[in-house]
Design a protein around this nucleic acid. Structure first.
Lengths: 198, 198, 198, 198
DNA sequence: CAGTAAACGAGACGGTACGTCCCGTCTTATG
DNA sequence: CATAAGACGGGACGTACCGTCTCGTTTACTG
């Protein structure tokens, strides 16, 4: 039925209306997510907030999970590795930055609800791992660079190192709810990196 | 109106029905909590599961939060400090035990939902801190003993130490979802304690 | 599980709330019906108009048709036969009255939509025949009395008579939309009854 | 832009596409009308049935009512007066024919929905009166011929006669749903015409 | 041991959200 | 520029729960 121009194999989403609808909806979803958590995101609420009809939302996303998933895709923004020349330098930059984001970023308040949902909803479990990968990507890159510089043996398992670096941050942010101050960050980095050197 | 027995100043809950109802409800609540997370706990669901009428439940607990709180009171079971004679020894026992519990205990799957709710519901925030205190109590005890033995300077802030010890565990349990094996635990302890010695 | 007092076999609708809800809903339905026709009756609209929650409406009526049906049950109010002593006298009273009701009664504007729906929906077809029976009941009674008085032979088929009496009224009310005035009513009665006498 | 043929001041619908679209749409509309009643006619449904896009339909008809109106234009086919030589003869032919059509014609099932809609939609009210005029046209012609023959006084109001003739048919077709058999038709004609003669 | 106050079950009720269907309007792209 | 394709807002559907509430009925304590 539909004939397509030869040189235009997939005119994917050329429709302006679709683009605009999706954008509006995703923005509203993200807003609701950060304001009221995962539980606050209902298709009805998103529709009311965005002004986009429920029908339209269901036209583009099959389920609430899918919508949330999509709205969070912007979250896992890959960080660049800083490349200060030494592993400790890189790590300091990264951990400091992560601490700052855990203090301020709005998604920080939502992560637990996503983690919780991931325990049950496989669709959201995938989101969880994507977010995790996004957050940790820069760390892995820094480690890779350190390997190239010879700071780290090729074979060493660095997952312990990573856990030692970010685990305490997460712990403080959500469990003990103590401050993520400069001294704490420094202390953690010392502990984690100390073991590597000798 | 109400006459009280002399030697029984607080005859609170002499009514057998009340006692039985409460018990049944709390058990059902706890079951639901561990099976379906906080989100799975609703007065409706608890009523259906326990066979106790919704009215009765609301008579004894003012809100869902209060009910959950009550049902979790048994959770924060204070651990004894092991007292092996050295801080590292104690810590090894405690961390190993915590790792084991994170792997197996049913409440481990629920904690994120409680943490999430705590971000918004002050009532559940209190539960959160109680659980946290319960989990960390033994660690604080061990640290205290170490102080008495002179292993640690009186003034040292040990919160960094604790974060370095349990943070990585939490990280692995809920974020990276990697295994909490023996080697990992050992590695973490080394990192955290190393700094203290000199 | 449920134990019932002996002497109270069916405590049918003793609940005041149910009674009030039903009443409110039926009133609103009837209002909507007369204002906007069958098409104007939607469960949503009834809910909005009556203030009764949609859930509650569905609790008491399984479908829109059932609701409309119930709301119309009051419509088919059986008319008494007038008993003036002669068939023509009775018939004059009845036809005059019917003409008046066709002019003024609010349901008159709705009947066509019910007739239409009855062509397709068997549930509403039943309503149609109930309404029809209600409207014609008095006529049949009058005929019966005439038979007893010997004005009509036992065997005569009176359905033709009835059709000749009310048919023209209906025709004028809905098809030609001319006035249902006194002269017309008289004229119709003359035509219909004339044939019987000799 | 548009070039017009010289000798054709009104080149109305020279476009073959338009003609074909209209035809297809009207046919589909009529089909739907007779199958599912007025309620079954929606632009969506017509579009689906005819294969013509909704846009196109709305280009040619401003509203559903207009479309239905157009599709029904063929319905009010004026009947010729039979001219048997006597009023009763003519009327017998006409009523018998009407009865036959009420039994068999597909539009008979639709009329109530049109009548209902006419109560609210003025556009359809016009359709209603056109249909009515079409149906009654032949009767009026027959009456006119009778007047010319002197069978009827010039001044007599014949609307009562017409109502007495067709009213009972309509009543039986839609209200009582009894059969429109030969005996009934004869009986009705007798009643209605009897009064005129003397 | 009778009377009474409470605890209790059953479930009606107002709500919110769900995901679906269909409609009439409006926009975009194709021929 | 007529047309096809289909996105969109809107309204209604009937369902599933939820938390509140109002009942009538047990039941255990009291006097």
């Amino acid at each position: 039925m539909k004939k397509k121009r030869a040189g235009k194999p997939v005119p994917k989403e050329t429709d302006e209306r679709v683009r605009r609808s999706k954008e509006t909806v995703l923005a509203a979803t993200y807003e609701l997510l950060t304001e009221a958590g995962l539980g606050g995101v209902s298709v009805d609420a998103v529709s009311a907030r965005s002004g986009v009809a429920k029908t339209t939302i269901y036209r583009h996303w099959p389920s609430r999970s899918a919508l949330v998933l999509d709205a969070c895709s912007q979250l896992g923004s890959k960080r660049e590795a800083p490349n200060t020349g030494s592993l400790k330098g890189d790590v300091t930059v990264l951990v400091t930055d992560l601490a700052r984001r855990l203090r301020t970023a709005r998604w920080a308040g939502v992560l637990p609800s996503i983690i919780d949902a991931a325990e049950r909803d496989p669709e959201l479990a995938e989101l969880h791992s994507r977010l995790h990968a996004g957050l940790m990507g820069a760390f892995n890159l820094a480690v890779e660079q350190a390997r190239k510089r010879g700071e780290l043996p090729r074979t060493q398992d660095t997952s312990h190192l990573l856990a030692a670096l970010v685990g305490p941050l997460f712990y403080r942010r959500w469990f003990s709810r103590e401050a993520l101050d400069e001294r704490f960050v420094q202390s953690i980095i010392e502990s984690a990196v100390a073991k590597l050197k000798p």
